[in-house]
């Protein structure tokens, strides 16, 4: 919902803290996901994720969440799906060029990022959206990513881990 979305972004620091607690928990549950089978849990987890993040952020389930790098503002709500910053059409009052009654997603994102401890992540260039991930769970993808990079780190020295971590989604 629009008003909830504005509220969460304006409390971006709070949600950053919550996520920082949440991520290690779901990651620790890796053996559970593995035993049940990632494919089998994909649907229910995606549904749960869509519900939670849908209410809080108007999440569009792109499957490669970047909320923690975009000030907790879901930039898939930008009518141009911009992943890297505001367009040049933002109105003087900070509203969207296309929907003048709504706030520009990126103005909110910038303000949210300024509250966050790791807010400068907004300055990193994001890769294009992988549309084949649409509708899938970003959480499970994060877990798999973290586990994979840990395993790779065991076999290999540093660089791989750093690269994987950079590619992590939320």
């Amino acid at each position: 919902m629009y008003s909830v979305r504005l509220w969460t972004t304006r409390h971006a620091r709070l949600f950053e803290i919550i996520y920082n607690v949440f991520e290690p928990i779901i990651t620790r549950l890796h053996p559970l996901w593995k035993n049940l089978g990632y494919e089998r849990v994909e649907k229910p987890v995606a549904r749960l994720e869509a519900l939670c993040k849908g209410v809080l952020f108007d999440c569009q389930m792109c499957g490669q969440c970047k909320l923690s790098t975009t000030g907790m503002s879901c930039t898939m709500n930008c009518p141009k799906n911009l992943r890297n910053g505001p367009c040049g059409g933002v109105r003087g009052d900070g509203n969207c060029e296309i929907y003048p009654q709504r706030r520009c997603v990126w103005v909110e994102a910038w303000n949210g990022s300024r509250q966050m401890r790791n807010g400068d992540a907004i300055l990193t260039v994001q890769k294009p959206v992988n549309f084949s991930y649409q509708g899938s769970s970003s959480w499970l993808r994060v877990v798999r990513g973290v586990v994979k990079s840990r395993e790779a780190a065991k076999l290999n020295p540093q660089p791989v881990q750093a690269k994987q971590a950079a590619e992590n989604t939320q």
Partner: peptide
Amino acid sequence: LSGDGVQSGDHPDAKPVFDLDSMSLLET
């Protein structure tokens, strides 16, 4: 460029693509 939204032009009924954005286009 990212480009203007379709809503501002003469074909507001067109499908907006926005597969890339200006930044990922540069990198590409």
